[in-house]
Structures are given as C-alpha cells and as structure tokens.
C-alpha cells in the first residue's frame, strides 16, 4: 500500500483543515503549550529546585499526550459513523486504507505541530542553562514518535464507536497501558510478585524505555522500529474494525 496516494493527500488536507475550522484547535494548541509549561516550570521545579534541565520538560510529554492525543483523534471515525458521512466517503473511489492513512497523517501532523509549538519553553531553558542540542532534537523526535503511536491508537478506537466520549476513554486506557507497562515505578512494584520474564515481556510493549533512550539523544533503530510497529498494528486493527462494521 502506498503511504500517500493522491486520495490520501486529499483526505489528509480535509482532515487537517477540519481542525482549524473551529476555534477548538487554537484552544487545544494553547492549552497544550500551557500545560507542558506549567508542569515543567512549576510542578517539576517544586521537587527539583536546582538547575535548568530539559529532562523535566521531556518527562511530561507521555502524560500530557495521554490526556490530549485522544481528544485530537476521538472524532476521526466516530463522527463519520454518527453523521453517516462514512457512507459518502466509502462510496467515493478511494480504498479504506487510503482513507485511514489520510486521517492518521492529519492527526499526527496536528500533534506534531502542537509538539513543535512548545519550543518557547526550550528557548527559555537554553537561556537559563546550557542544554545539549542533540538531546533536544532526540527528545523532540521521541515526543513526536510517541504522539504517533498514541494517534494510531486513537484512530483505532475512534472506529469502534459512534460516540466520541467512549472513543476518548478507550484510547486513554490503551495509551495508559502503553505508558505504564514499562514505567520504572510501576515495574518495580510488579517485580515484587511477577516472574521477571513476564515483567520484561510486558515492559517491552511499553513506550517508556524507547521514549527515554531517545531523550538521551541516542537514535537507536530499534526504538524507531518499535514506534513503527505500534503504529502499523493499531492502524491494522482499525482497518479490521472498519471492515467488520461493513460486513456485519
């Protein structure tokens, strides 16, 4: 399947513009920036009041994305199903895969924009301290890939229901699992009773280890492969859900 056919591009443009056709997108972008800023400067500082460090900035992305990515993806398919426009979309000469990819790219691009718009925080920190440029780029790459994995999950859950709220909650639960499964504090607790092979198997599903290694400025092929696999699996799941709806 082609990653961006002409049809995918048309659907991408429509979906991406749809974010900006209501003021919600602007509210979303501002809120995203403010939340990350608040958590970085106030909450983290509260515990670690010593020096400027981007560690605390990148620390928050998995948690802020957990709350906000599902909000950006919840309507993608559920709204098409609720209003019946899915019937229009799928009787146009496009394949289901093309439509699915168009929506995924649009939501991921929107989240990438939200991520990049946090750069004022980075600039502020650079002023205060002297962070490493490689770590900044690695951190951003990690944050964008992480958002991609969450977006794919959100696209999938939005296909499961006509209800945006259900779509949001299910996406949040799945993403929470992806985040917590390999988060050291949780792993330590689980380690006390579960066999270590089980702990490492579950942890290997998690976004966290891959997120953290990118934050150190090391771009490891395996981390990128991990995110690509999560995205492909979630989108394939979405494809199956939509295909089943049609044949039901």
């Amino acid at each position: 399947m082609r990653l961006c056919s002409a049809n995918t591009w048309e659907i991408f443009k429509r979906e991406f513009r749809a974010y900006f056709e209501s003021p919600v997108a602007y509210v979303f972008l501002v809120f995203y920036l403010m939340l990350i800023g608040f958590l970085t400067f106030f909450v983290s500082r509260f515990y670690e009041a010593n020096q400027a460090d981007l560690k605390y900035f990148f620390f928050w992305f998995p948690w802020v994305n957990l709350l906000l990515v599902p909000a950006a993806t919840m309507r993608l398919w559920s709204e098409e199903r609720r209003t019946g426009t899915m019937e229009l979309l799928l009787t146009f000469p496009v394949t289901l895969g093309e439509a699915l990819l168009g929506k995924f790219w649009a939501a991921w691009t929107f989240m990438t924009l939200a991520t990049i718009l946090t750069f004022p925080i980075v600039i502020t920190t650079m002023w205060l301290g002297d962070p490493d440029l490689g770590a900044i780029l690695g951190g951003y790459l990690g944050a964008i890939l992480l958002a991609g994995a969450y977006v794919a999950v959100g696209v999938w859950t939005s296909a499961m229901t006509r209800n945006q709220v259900i779509s949001y909650v299910v996406a949040l639960v799945v993403c929470l699992f992806l985040a917590l499964a390999g988060w050291p504090p949780v792993m330590d607790i689980v380690n006390r009773w579960a066999p270590s092979w089980l702990v490492s198997a579950v942890a290997s599903l998690s976004v966290m280890p891959h997120y953290e290694s990118l934050q150190r400025g090391v771009v490891d092929f395996r981390d990128v492969l991990y995110y690509a696999s999560v995205i492909v699996l979630a989108l394939f799941g979405c494809y199956l859900v939509l295909e089943n709806r049609r044949t039901a």
Partner: peptide, 21 residues
Amino acid sequence: APLYPEMTVRGFLDFVAGIRG
C-alpha cells in the same frame, strides 16, 4: 444527505472534486 457540517459548500465540493481525481 450526510455532509461534513463544519465545511463550507465550496470547500466541500472542492474536496469531492479532488477525490474524484
């Protein structure tokens, strides 16, 4: 007659024209 409510008439028809190639 399902339609995308937030689009303008022109914008919607332009999208359909694009999808139609």
